[in-house]
Computed example of a mutant assay.
Amino acid sequence: MDLQLEGKLAVVTGSTAGIGRAIASALAAEGATVVVNGRNPESVEATAKELSALGGGTVHGIVCALDSAEGVDTLITGAEAIGPVDILVNNVGIFEPKPFEEIPDEDWRRFFDVNVMSGVRCSRAVMCGMRDRGWGRILFISSESGINIPEEMVHYGMTKTAQLAIARGLAKALAGTGVTVNSLLPGPTWTEGVATFVAKMAEQRGTTAEAMKAEFVPMVRPSSLIRRFATPEEVAAHAAYLCSPLASATSGAAHRVEGGIVDICF
């Protein structure tokens, strides 16, 4: 299927690994010009080169952290030097299991700045241009944890719920403009960060990483219908569609790519 993304400029935050990288790759494969972003210069440069070598749209890299207004300004200014931003994927995020009583105030603020305010600031920076041009796509990568708040990382779940509220409200603010705003809710997805987390869990339990990987979803997310981790590419395929002109009738929606963990049918 042609997603009609050729000639579009997409910015994907936090896109040197995991779901963000997979989304950047999917958009580039469909012909979009893509800006990838991360904190590490070597990772950003390598990602841009590797994705460009796959063919499709051109991939650029911009190095900056997005936990501050200054970092967001660096990203958006750099992207707009390439061209008007047509697509924004607010993907950057952090997670860390920690008992509620051990989460200090600074962790709540850090999670909110990275996971929530990065998307607020990026969206605010590009929405007026999209509205004036009569077309745009803003996508927040939330999580099923925004609905099923995980007791092992309540601060993370809080940020993912906040993203859902922001995306819905922003969609209303941009109603009738040709700009759509949606959320995507992945479930457990096998990324580099998750692999490290699972390996540590395996070590603590005296088992192998492979065994822990197989047991994790049935044990921690027993309502999963696919009973496995999703791949970043499976999530990215859905994201690419929501970023495309083909999804013009979808706005203000929260699309689930969580393997059926959330036990509702709508």
Rank of each mutant, 00 (worst) to 15 (best):
V11M: 05
E151D: 13
D113F: 01
Q163W: 01
I94S: 08
I103G: 02
A53W: 02
E233L: 00
L54C: 04
R39P: 04
E101R: 13
G260W: 10
G259C: 10
G71N: 07
E203G: 15
M127C: 10
V72Y: 01
A162L: 08
L75C: 11
S183E: 09
I19P: 00
P188T: 02
P232N: 04
L225E: 15
A81G: 15
G7V: 12
E233P: 00
T250I: 14
M130L: 12
T231K: 00
V181I: 12
A81T: 15
K213G: 01
F140T: 06
L3T: 04
G83D: 14
E151R: 12
V198T: 04
G38D: 06
P104R: 06
I226F: 14
L184R: 08
R110C: 00
A254W: 07
A236I: 04
T58V: 02
T161W: 08
A230T: 07
A28Y: 01
G78Q: 11
P186T: 06
T207M: 14
M127V: 13
I87T: 11
G18V: 05
K98R: 15
L139W: 05
N148T: 12
S123Q: 04
G157Y: 05
E50H: 03
P104K: 07
L66H: 07
F111G: 07
E6D: 11
G187L: 06
V235N: 02
V154I: 15
S15A: 11
A211P: 01
N37Q: 12
V220W: 00
M130S: 10
V11T: 04
R168E: 15
F100H: 14
S25K: 06
L174D: 11
D67V: 01
P104A: 09
E96T: 04
G78C: 13
I261T: 05
E210N: 12
